[in-house]
Simulated assay, not measured.
Amino acid sequence: MKKITPDPPLADPTFADPLLEAQKLKEAADRAIDYYLNPRLIKDPAAPRKPSTLFIVDPAADNETLLVHACESLASASIMASDLAGFIDGPQRSSLLGIQQVIMLGELAVNRVLDRLVPE
């Protein structure tokens, strides 16, 4: 009677050099670690980064204009945070008032720069 399947090979195909296996395992582990902990290595470093132009500040805008808009934005954020704090109680209110104070300090710093700015 004929056999349908051939005899298995005499040599064990799973046997391999332990040093080679250890090297392959180390390389695989390094690739995995680099993929998750250092993703910049995976990307092509020669490709230039192209920033999004969806929200862009006009490069031709002068410093005074930029500072005035920053001051107005900070003032608006301060008022919004202060108004919202009126509706909240407890530690969240204290946190929101702390954020409002940081915004206000930023607004004061921008105002000081505007005061020192020499008109052109």
Rank of each mutant, 00 (worst) to 15 (best):
M1I: 09
M1D: 08
K2C: 01
K3R: 10
T5C: 08
T5I: 07
P6K: 13
P6E: 07
P8L: 14
P9V: 11
L10E: 11
D12E: 12
P13S: 08
T14S: 09
F15Q: 11
F15N: 07
F15I: 04
A16V: 14
D17L: 01
D17V: 00
L19W: 03
L19H: 05
L19S: 09
E21S: 10
E21N: 07
E21D: 10
K24S: 09
K24G: 06
K24Y: 02
L25V: 07
L25G: 05
E27H: 03
A29N: 03
A29R: 06
D30T: 01
R31F: 01
A32G: 03
Y36K: 12
Y36T: 11
L37Q: 15
L37T: 03
N38Y: 14
N38L: 12
P39A: 15
R40L: 15
L41E: 04
L41I: 11
I42S: 10
D44C: 02
D44I: 00
A46P: 01
A46Q: 11
A46G: 04
P48K: 10
P48Q: 10
P48D: 12
P48I: 07
P48S: 06
R49P: 02
R49T: 09
K50H: 08
K50V: 15
K50Y: 04
P51A: 03
F55N: 09
F55M: 08
I56P: 00
D58Q: 02
D58V: 07
P59I: 10
P59M: 03
A60W: 01
A61P: 00
D62N: 15
D62S: 06
D62Q: 09
E64R: 15
T65F: 14
T65P: 05
T65H: 13
T65S: 14
L67I: 02
V68W: 11
H69M: 12
H69N: 14
H69Y: 08
C71T: 05
C71R: 12
E72A: 14
E72N: 15
L74D: 04
L74I: 02
A75H: 07
S76A: 14
S76N: 10
S76L: 12
A77Q: 13
S78A: 13
I79R: 14
I79L: 14
M80P: 00
M80W: 04
M80K: 15
S82V: 05
S82Q: 08
D83L: 11
D83G: 05
D83T: 11
L84I: 01
L84G: 10
G86N: 15
G86V: 04
F87Q: 12
I88N: 02
D89L: 06
D89N: 07
G90N: 04
P91D: 12
P91H: 07
Q92P: 03
R93M: 07
S95I: 15
L96K: 04
L96G: 03
L97T: 08
G98Y: 09
G98T: 08
Q100F: 02
Q100W: 00
Q101A: 15
Q101G: 11
M104S: 15
L105R: 09
L105A: 09
L105S: 10
L105H: 06
E107M: 14
L108F: 02
N111P: 01
N111S: 12
N111W: 00
R112E: 09
L114W: 12
L114P: 06
L114E: 10
D115Y: 08
D115C: 04
D115S: 09
R116K: 11
R116N: 13
V118P: 02
E120T: 06
